[in-house]
């Protein structure tokens, strides 16, 4: 018995986890895949009806789907880009000798560990056009109040702002950890060569940070693509469909319109997008010389 276990330890140790993932993830995704070729509105009377690729065809002609796709990329790219720039900046600042650095680092953790639903509600109050502090602040500066989350033009920037608030610290902390572990010699050599701060940053720091940055961006991107809680708790995709990202649209199709087949098709497309972006980034990271 013991011998058998030892010989097959690779599998004995991994199988429980693999079986669990298979049961809880692969099977449901398989079922969703199956449903995506059927027409079903959750009825107990009429079972799912085979419609082949109809759901996909409808999906790619659905304006709202294409819009939600755009919004998802807009949200993800804008958020992650801003977070990366701000995060690197913040990390460089924090890499100096700061009084109370430990406490500062700890407090920066708070936005990202706070429960997203609660975070959403806090921001709803902050952005509230009539009583929110955002407009109180603008009016103190003599600027006109905005409608933030309730304006079709401002809703996406407002949501991106929340995401930036929530996640910039994470990028900053990851980059900070990377900065701390950088070797000192290249900088000394650069100093001798008379390089200025910007030159040593762009020529030494950035290239050395590349692997760390890739990892941080990958992590953030996966989560940004999937953002659900914050949007659901603040706008539920509104006003109109101005903040209806693909995740929210999938939820609406599935659980509000009960178009299960079409929702499943959308989820499969979503799944493929997220997966391919992830794989692409991992490959990129590999080429940059990092492994998992």
């Amino acid at each position: 018995m013991t011998n058998w276990i030892d010989r097959n330890i690779k599998w004995v140790f991994t199988m429980p986890a693999v079986i669990f993932v298979a049961l809880m993830m692969v099977m449901p995704v398989g079922y969703t895949f199956w449903l995506s070729f059927h027409d079903w509105n959750m009825s107990n009377v009429t079972p799912p009806l085979w419609v082949a690729f109809e759901n996909y065809k409808v999906l790619f002609h659905d304006e709202l789907f294409l819009k939600s796709l755009k919004l998802m990329f807009y949200f993800t790219i804008a958020s992650v880009a801003i977070e990366t720039v701000l995060g690197v900046g913040l990390a460089i600042l924090m890499n100096q000798n700061i009084v109370g650095k430990g406490i500062v680092k700890t407090l920066f953790l708070l936005p990202m560990v706070a429960t997203p639903v609660a975070v959403g509600l806090i921001w709803v109050l902050i952005y509230e056009p009539n009583i929110g502090i955002a407009n109180v602040f603008l009016q103190k500066l003599g600027l006109p109040g905005q409608e933030w989350l309730t304006s079709q033009n401002l809703v996406m920037p407002s949501l991106i702002f929340i995401d930036v608030w929530e996640w910039t610290p994470m990028i900053a902390l990851i980059v900070l950890a990377g900065l701390v572990s950088l070797p000192k010699d290249p900088y000394e050599a650069a100093m001798i060569d008379g390089a200025n701060t910007w030159q040593s940053f762009s020529k030494i720091t950035l290239p050395l940070l590349k692997p760390t940055l890739y990892s941080a961006i990958l992590l953030r991107m996966i989560d940004a693509l999937k953002t659900f809680d914050i949007i659901y708790a603040t706008t539920q995709g509104g006003p109109g469909t101005s903040s209806q990202t693909i995740n929210i649209y999938g939820y609406v199709l599935g659980f509000q319109y009960f178009k299960i087949g079409q929702a499943s098709a959308l989820l499969m497309v979503f799944f493929v997008i997220v997966l391919s972006i992830s794989i692409f980034t991992i490959l990129l990271r590999k080429r940059a010389g990092v492994n998992l």
């Binding site: 509230e128 056009p129 009539n130 409608e147 309730t150 079709q152 706008t235 006003p239």
Partner: peptide, 21 residues
């Protein structure tokens, strides 16, 4: 109308009214 009507269902609209606004 007040600001922010585009996100008002009845709890929000009712709140505007009951706050005397």
């Amino acid at each position: 109308g007040p600001k922010g009507t585009l996100n008002m269902s009845w709890p929000e609209a009712m709140a505007v009214f009951t706050q005397g606004k």
